[in-house]
């Protein structure tokens, strides 16, 4: 599998582009975690009428996708008539706010007055459908929802669609949103883990929010002549015998120099339910301080990796990075995305 990355974007409390995220990771941007994502930029892309019934999750997706398309200099509506676009959306929990809005409508007004709009928006594939409708995409459209492994799983699906010719371009994104209810649940679960001394744990990060989108095409497609970064491999496999708390394959202690850079110029990112001590031992880049506890952190890792490869310099890079590995391990599933820079 080799996938060309024609454009990408990410957004969250750090801002709405990968350089802002990179600056935050380097300690030069907003530090600490706040769940508020500025979505005012949507007005650049869509008339208010199109956004009238969109929930927060779908707005995150719409803005992330629009920024990625702009970064790629592409728009599905303006493409060749014969170009088939697809949409793959990955999420850990799906659109949570509409679910709780729907429950509010029942608890406040009774079952007979439950909000049909809130229910519709809570169905997990609706944000992808809203993307397709607003961007004019009549092609394959899928949502993958499986906590932390959703990103590698969704990328695997995007890659197979491109490889088999089901789509010529795929808009792939990872999205998760903050809600007070899920945040409180996250805190309770973190406290439970902290109370369980037998298992190493992560920091007690608050629930995060963010989105990262990528415009993908076949590496051997019609744009193959121009340089672009590539996703060289996506692997996804269950490791049922390996509980959370142990080091997944590929996260060996001491493998990298400070800054997450291997001698051969490879960046390493780690996300998922991997104990902090293991991440530190491997000297992997850990975006948790900026993203918070975000199921789709691996998507933001990929965006940061692309920005670092593009800028040819990591936070403390001694040699320019040429490749990146974005590793995720959680709930018995290991997902890895290998990225090569445009010049590698």
């Amino acid at each position: 599998m080799s996938i060309r990355v024609d454009g990408y974007a990410c957004l969250g409390s750090f801002g709405r582009d990968a350089p802002s995220l990179l600056a935050s990771l380097r300690g030069n941007g907003p530090s600490g975690f706040t769940p508020a994502t500025d979505l005012s930029g949507l007005a650049e892309f869509f008339p208010p009428r199109n956004l009238r019934q969109c929930d927060h999750f779908s707005r995150l997706a719409l803005l992330g996708a629009s920024l990625a398309l702009r970064n790629a200099g592409l728009a599905p509506r303006d493409g060749d008539a014969g170009t088939v676009w697809g949409v793959v959306l990955a999420s850990g929990y799906g659109p949570a706010r509409p679910t709780f809005d729907f429950l509010d409508s029942i608890l406040e007004h009774g079952e007979g007055m439950a909000s049909p709009l809130a229910f519709s928006l809570s169905v997990h594939n609706i944000p992808a459908a809203i993307l397709a409708r607003n961007l004019g995409i009549i092609g394959p459209c899928a949502t993958v929802c499986q906590y932390e492994s959703a990103v590698a799983s969704g990328l695997l699906l995007a890659g197979t669609w491109l490889a088999e010719g089901r789509a010529d371009r795929v808009l792939f994104g990872g999205v998760d949103e903050h809600t007070p209810v899920l945040d409180a649940i996250t805190a309770r679960l973190a406290q439970e883990r902290a109370d369980n001394k037998a298992r190493p744990c992560r920091r007690r990060l608050p629930l995060g929010e963010g989105a990262a989108f990528f415009v993908l095409s076949r590496a051997d497609g019609k744009d193959k002549g121009s340089p672009a970064p590539r996703i060289e491999a996506v692997s996804l496999s269950a490791s049922p015998g390996q509980p959370d708390g142990l080091a997944p394959d590929g996260l060996a202690p001491g493998g990298l120099a400070p800054g997450g850079l291997a001698p051969d110029g490879e960046l390493l990112f780690a996300s998922g339910i991997v104990p902090d001590g293991l991440k530190r031992a491997a000297k992997a880049i850990d975006g948790g301080r900026v993203y918070g506890n975000l199921p789709v952190a691996q998507a933001l890792d990929c965006a940061v990796a692309l920005a670092m490869l593009e800028n040819a310099g990591g936070p403390e890079a001694a040699t320019p990075p040429r490749r990146a590995r974005c590793l995720n391990f959680a709930r018995g599933v290991r997902g890895e995305v290998r990225i090569a820079g445009a010049t590698s």
Binding site: G94, V123, H124, N125, C141, A142, T143, V144, C145, Q146, S149, S153, L156, L157, L236, S237, A238, S239, P240, V333
Partner: peptide, 10 residues
């Protein structure tokens, strides 16, 4: 031990 995917396409 193979790939794992949960599709939520309604």
């Amino acid at each position: 031990t193979g790939p794992v995917q949960t599709i939520a396409n309604a």
